[in-house]
Design a protein around this nucleic acid. Structure first.
Length: 563
RNA sequence: GCGCCUGUAGCUCAGUUGGAUAGAGCAACUGCCUUCUAAGCAGUAGGCCAGGGGUUCGAAUCCCUUCAGGCGCGCCA
C-alpha cells in the first residue's frame, strides 16, 4: 500500500522537474484525512517558488495510476491525502493471504552480511535482568533483519581470559578451602553470591576432598571448572529465554591460538607465528597509530576524536582489556561483514569512541561499526530500588524472572520500550499485572482466531464450502475495512523498523492490531449461516493471524493456538 | 568539572526521523458471560510535552541555555 504510493509519487514529483532525496509518507492522525498522506508539496514550495497548493495539484495531476484510489484530496495547508479504493485494498488483502511472509516483508538487506554481538556477559555469575534486555533486543533485531533479507550472524563474546574470571576462581577456591574446614582468608573484593558456595560444593563432589596438591594447579583447575559451569548456566538461561546464538567466541583464543580454525589457509599471510592480539597491535603500529610512552604502549585514538589515547600494553607488560577487544573486532572485520553491530549496556558508552577509532584506524568507515546502547534496568521491589551488584551477590537473576513471570512476558515488556529509555520494573507489579500484561492481549487475539478456525472445521463449514480465499470483499463493512487497511500498513511498519533497527515498532503495531481485532470479535460473529459473509470474514481473520504470527516471530514471542 | 542518555496523563511508556486537534497500557469509576475463549468488550476521567530563548510555512521532535535524574570519565574489566 505504501510502496505503490511511494513509487507513484516519486514518478509524479520527478515529472515536476525536481529531484528529492527522501519522500515522507505518513498515516494521518485523523481518519477523515484519508489512508496515507504526504507533506511533500510543502517541502517543495521553496525550491519551486510556487505555493504548496499549486504544487500539490500538479503532483496529483501527474499521478498515472489513479484507479487504485477512491479519492485524492489536497488539504488547506498543502497535504495530499490519499484514500484507496475498496477494490484495490481487497485485492491486496488477497495477495497478503496468498503470499504471506513474502507480502509482509521487503528485501532491504539484499543479502548483506551483518554480525550482531550481544549479551556477552562475563561468565562469572548468572545473567541478571539487565542482560535480559540486551538479549531480547539482540534476538528481536536479528529476527527483524533476517526477515528483511540480511545475512545475520549472532555472536556471544566470552570474556574467559580476564581478571574477573581469575577473581571468580579465587572466590570459589577460598570457599572450597573453607568448606574443607581450613582457616582460609575471606576474599575482600571477590564474588559473594550464594552460587559461589554452590560451585565450591559441586567442585568438591567431582574433585573430592583432598587438597594435597600445590595451590597453583588446583586454583587453575577450579577456575576452569567454575567459569565453564557458569557459562553452561548462561547458555541454559538464554535457551529458556528463547534466545539463541550462532557462534560463541572465546577471548582466550585470541591470546593462545595463532590462527583461528574459522579461516582458510593463506588468508592471514605471515601472521601465523603470533597471537591475534599481537598481530592487531602490529597492524595498528604499521598504520602509525601505536606509540610508546612512560613505558606503556598506547593507541592513538585521539586521531579519530576520542578524548584521550588509550593504553593497550601496560608498563608491566600485560595487555589491558582493550587489547583483546581490538583483536576481537579486527577478527570480525577479517570475516568480511558488511556491517557490525554491538549491543552494549549503557554503562559502557564511554567505550564507544575508542572502538570506533579502532575501525577507522584499520581503514574502515565510522559507520561500519554500529553500537546500540541498552539503558540500565532499575529494579524496584515494593517501590524501592534493588541494588544490582554481581560482586556483592545482590541481583535479580534472569532465571528468577523467567520462572516467576515468564520469558514471553519479559521479552515483550522489554520490546515495548526504546532501547535508550531508562526502564523501571517493579517486580511485584510485574508479577501482579502478569494476567493483564499486553503480551497476553496480543497472544490472545491469535489464539482466538485460531479457535474461530477450529470452530469452522468442527462445524464442517470448511469441508462444505471450501476455501475462503475467493472471498467477496464488497461485503466488508467500515470496521472491517479499517482492519484491512491496518493490515496493509504492516509492510511499511516492518520496513521502517528494520531500517531504524527498532523492533519496538513492531510491538506497538501488534498491540494496535490486537486492539482492533478484539472489539471486532466481540461485535460480529465470523462463522454463520451466511456462506459468502463467513468467507470474507474468515479471510480477514486469516490475514490478521498471518500478521500477528509474523510480528510475534520477530519478537521471538510465542503465538499460541490456545490459551 | 567534562561527556553520553533521559525528562510527555497519578504510574510505566509510545509518538511514524520536522507535519494536521497529543497517544496507549496500567491504576480509578460505571456496565456486559446460554453465542467462534471474559487473558475480552462498551463507557467516564486524566496534559504548561521539565522551564526559558531561538531556527521556519509548521517544533514534544532540530539548536542554545537552565533545572532534575541516571551512567561514564583508570596502565580495572
Amino acid at each position: 500500500m505504501e510502496k505503490i504510493l511511494r513509487e507513484a509519487l516519486l514518478k509524479a514529483v520527478k515529472s515536476q522537474g525536481v529531484e528529492i532525496s527522501s519522500l515522507e509518507i505518513e498515516v494521518p492522525k485523523e481518519e477523515g484525512f484519508g489512508d496515507l498522506s504526504t507533506p511533500v508539496a510543502m517541502g517543495l514550495a521553496k525550491t519551486l517558488k510556487k505555493p504548496p497548493r499549486k504544487i500539490a495539484e500538479d503532483i496529483v495531476n501527474s499521478i498515472e495510476n489513479k484507479v487504485i484510489f477512491e479519492k485524492i484530496d489536497i488539504a488547506g495547508s498543502g497535504f495530499i491525502n490519499f484514500t484507496f479504493s475498496k477494490k484495490y485494498l481487497c485485492d491486496e488483502l488477497k495477495e497478503l493471504i496468498k503470499k504471506q511472509d513474502d507480502f509482509l516483508t521487503e528485501d532491504i538487506g539484499k543479502g548483506k552480511r551483518v554480525q550482531i554481538e550481544f549479551v556477552s556477559a562475563n561468565p562469572t555469575g548468572p545473567l541478571h535482568l539487565g542482560h535480559g534486555r540486551g538479549a531480547a533486543l539482540g534476538a528481536a533485531l536479528s529476527n527483524l533483519l533476517i526477515e528483511a533479507g540480511y545475512d545475520i550472524e549472532k555472536e556471544y563474546y566470552i570474556n574467559d581470559a580476564g581478571r574477573q574470571v581469575k577473581l571468580l576462581g579465587m572466590s570459589v577456591f577460598a570457599k572450597y578451602k573453607q568448606l574443607l574446614g581450613k582457616d582460609y582468608p575471606f576474599l575482600e573484593d571477590g564474588y559473594k553470591g550464594d552460587y559461589i558456595e554452590d560451585l565450591a560444593r559441586e567442585f568438591m563432589k567431582i574433585r573430592g576432598y583432598g587438597d594435597a596438591e600445590n595451590k597453583d594447579s588446583l586454583l587453575e583447575e577450579i577456575t576452569d571448572f567454575a567459569y565453564k559451569k557458569m557459562l553452561d548456566e548462561i547458555k541454559k538461561d538464554l535457551e529458556d529465554f528463547g534466545v539463541f546464538f550462532d557462534s560463541w567466541q572465546s577471548e582466550r583464543e585470541l591470546y593462545t591460538l595463532p590462527i583461528s580454525p574459522h579461516y582458510k589457509e593463506g588468508e592471514w599471510g605471515g601472521e601465523i607465528q603470533k597471537s591475534e592480539i599481537e598481530n592487531s597491535i602490529d597492524e595498528l603500529k604499521n598504520r602509525g597509530y601505536i606509540y610508546e610512552k612512560d613505558g606503556a604502549v598506547w593507541f592513538k585514538s585521539t586521531a579519530f576524536g576520542d578524548d584521550k589515547d588509550r593504553v593497550v600494553i601496560k608498563k608491566e607488560g600485560d595487555y589491558t582489556y582493550f587489547a583483546p577487544d581490538i583483536a576481537y573486532h579486527r577478527r570480525k572485520l577479517k570475516k568480511g561483514y558488511d556491517e557490525i553491530i554491538d549491543i552494549w549496556g549503557a554503562d559502557h558508552h564511554g567505550y564507544v569512541p575508542r572502538m570506533q577509532s579502532v575501525f577507522q584506524a584499520l581503514g574502515y568507515p565510522r559507520g561500519h561499526l554500529r553500537v546500540l546502547l541498552v539503558q540500565m534496568v532499575t529494579l524496584l521491589r515494593e517501590g524501592k530500588p534493588v541494588q544490582m551488584s554481581k560482586r556483592a551477590g545482590e541481583f535479580i537473576t534472569l532465571r528468577e524472572v523467567i520462572d516467576e513471570i515468564g520469558a514471553d512476558t519479559i521479552k515483550f515488556l522489554f520490546l515495548t520500550r526504546r532501547p535508550d529509555s531508562h526502564l523501571e520494573i517493579d517486580i511485584e507489579v510485574a508479577k501482579a499485572q502478569s494476567s493483564e500484561n499486553p503480551v497476553y492481549y496480543v497472544q490472545y487475539a491469535h489464539a482466538r482466531i485460531n479457535s474461530i478456525f477450529e470452530k469452522a472445521k468442527e462445524s464442517s463449514w470448511l469441508m462444505a464450502h471450501g476455501s475462503w480465499i475467493d472471498f467477496n470483499g464488497e461485503l466488508f463493512n467500515d470496521e472491517e475495512m479499517r482492519i484491512v487497511k491496518k493490515l496493509l500498513l504492516y509492510p511499511m511498519i516492518f520496513k521502517n523498523a528494520a531500517l531504524a533497527h527498532e523492533p519496538h515498532r513492531i510491538t506497538f503495531y501488534l498491540q494496535e492490531l490486537a486492539g482492533m481485532f478484539h472489539p471486532y470479535y466481540h461485535k460480529y460473529r465470523v462463522v454463520s449461516e451466511d456462506i459468502e459473509l463467513t468467507k470474507s470474514r474468515l479471510a480477514l481473520c486469516a490475514a490478521i493471524m498471518i500478521v500477528l504470527k509474523h510480528g510475534l516471530k520477530i519478537l521471538s514471542v510465542k503465538a499460541p493456538e490456545r490459551m
